[in-house]
Amino acid sequence: MSDRDDPTSLWQAARAGSARAFSVPGAVLFGSFVGFGALARASGLELGQSLFMTAFIWALPSQVVLVDQIGSGAGLVASAVAVTLTAIRLLPMTVSVLPVVASRSHSIPLKMLMAHFVAVTVWIETMRRVPDLSRDVRVPYYLGLSFTLVSICMVANALGFSLSGSVGVPVAAALVLLTPLYFLLSMLTAAKASVDWLAVAAGICLGPVFYTYAPGLDLLWTGLVGGTLAFGLSRLRFGRQAKREDAG
């Protein structure tokens, strides 16, 4: 284990990163992209369009929101607003992961390429593994991990897309359920401070309400109202506790 995680050449590092993609989080990601493929087909997209999304968006929440917006006939601006709100979370993730992998000497285009791969699974695996590696092999390790995960997920995407048309209702339904189940559990896995738990609870309670009374802008309202509520409550009522947990 330590031998494989302690590569010396750039090529070895890229291969070690690639091998990390075949892990438990990678397996869950595979399953949820099978689910995404099924969801994309259910929403009326073509296979090529869903694969294009996986390669060029590479953020499951953004992709699911976009598929949903296209499926419900939303316009370009409304779709972009809904997607971009979902993607704001990538800013703090990028800010925290980039200094671990890259250094000041790396070029801006290379950093932008690396930033494109920032998503929950890549972030978790990078923060867990990369700090143990020597500085000069971190970039190839990260790129090996990222390219392999994207490739695996494109295979899963195509598989889910083609399976959902030929299997019965129970299996097709199970594939569609994978995405919300994976999102829910990965949010709960990542939850540390009280604000995280409150935000998940508020979003779950408000989501269906806003969808019923304000369809189209429901995700925006759910995020703003639920998130602000959770943030305010954790600052006022659990202020001290939240700060202590943040620091820990």
């Binding site: 259910a42 979902t86 703090p92 959902s164 569609v176 408000l206 269906p208 998130g227």
Partner: peptide, 23 residues
Amino acid sequence: VRAVSTALVAGLVARLIVFPLGA
């Protein structure tokens, strides 16, 4: 910002379960 995006994704989860798509 993190709280808003977490609530937004949680809202999407609830919607995909209460008002689901496809099969």
